[in-house]
Design a protein around this nucleic acid. Sequence first.
DNA 1: TCTCCGATGTATCGGCGCGATACAACTGGT
DNA 2: ACCAGTTGTATCGCGCCGATACATCGGAGA
Lengths: 195, 195
Amino acid sequence: MAKTDVLTLAILGILRDRPHHGYQIRKLLGVELGPFRALSYGSLYPCLRRMVEAGLIEASGDEPGNPTPASSRRARIAYSLTEAGRARLTTELANAGASSWDDDAFDVRFSLFAHTDAATRLRILEGRRSRLAERLEEVSEGLKRMHERHDAYTAELQRHGLEQVEREISWLDRLIENERSAPGGDHHGSASADH
Amino acid sequence: MAKTDVLTLAILGILRDRPHHGYQIRKLLGVELGPFRALSYGSLYPCLRRMVEAGLIEASGDEPGNPTPASSRRARIAYSLTEAGRARLTTELANAGASSWDDDAFDVRFSLFAHTDAATRLRILEGRRSRLAERLEEVSEGLKRMHERHDAYTAELQRHGLEQVEREISWLDRLIENERSAPGGDHHGSASADH
DNA sequence: TCTCCGATGTATCGGCGCGATACAACTGGT
DNA sequence: ACCAGTTGTATCGCGCCGATACATCGGAGA
């Protein structure tokens, strides 16, 4: 019951400042997380429905429930956070534990960093880093062990994966460094300011 | 009907040399593609069943269909390629078109490069490269356009994604270069030799 | 020797996310 | 006046995942 999935969290984050239509939510998510990582309508609308049922968001606008037959206007539904939704977002932002460092979860949480406190940011950053370090261990161990058993292409793929992980780790190190040297939160630009 | 999905292709590739149990298939896939990207049993067994139904693979071993009550041995099922399966693998390896450059598909195909001809390798490599180039375009365009509208963390996420894509493009460039300068296939080590 | 633990091994269930697809209305260009 | 593109809501089937259950076997330690 308490498990807030990533998609829900992302939507809560987008709806934080002002209401949006489903269509807009999808667009914004696509921009925020890069053009890849875009969610499809096949997940969006079911998720919105679930959130409405859970009382996290509210639908407003000319819903089909009110036919207004004269104007014949189509349904254009704007979703906005309820108090419960805003509360959920707050608690979820403060709670860094429980697999905030999975691949999908991490960038969603990262994109919400501006609304979090420095301690949580650091916790997530370091959690992600240690997870990546584990992977690094596994991959490089596997690389050693397979020396003769696999072809050059497979090895090349592994080496590339290894490099990607190393890159991301040093990226994280840079961010952690910045976060530590600016405990107030605002490390460059207007990160924790409202806008 | 003709659509061979990625998972099926990966399994065909693993079963190419010798039969394996489901458990082993999962392990091998995890090693080949890195410890992440591992498929779960919840996808493996259904996929194996589908492949058996499609006649691509064959199950052998003491199946539960033959109870052998005296020995009471549990089911340990070894899967092996049928002729149809081997044929499918061959045609699928030669066929580079139709989205061989999606994120998941690419590394599976790449891990099978040792069993392909140089022309196909080049086609896939270049297809992947141009797809990545498109993304690069989108992301950097988005980065420019959002200058004031987003916080520093979101921008940082974008920049990181951009760098990852750039990295992968130059990796691909290196591979393409190698592939071109060694048209026989064997660019370093024993890539296209049997083992 | 007995026992328990971890690796090997097969299998299913509920639920979620994706791609494809359909439909509707507004907007702007020619 | 028309057609194309964008905004917008919605569903269906199916693949895949995480969790879970259960069975067997080898070996390490009491």
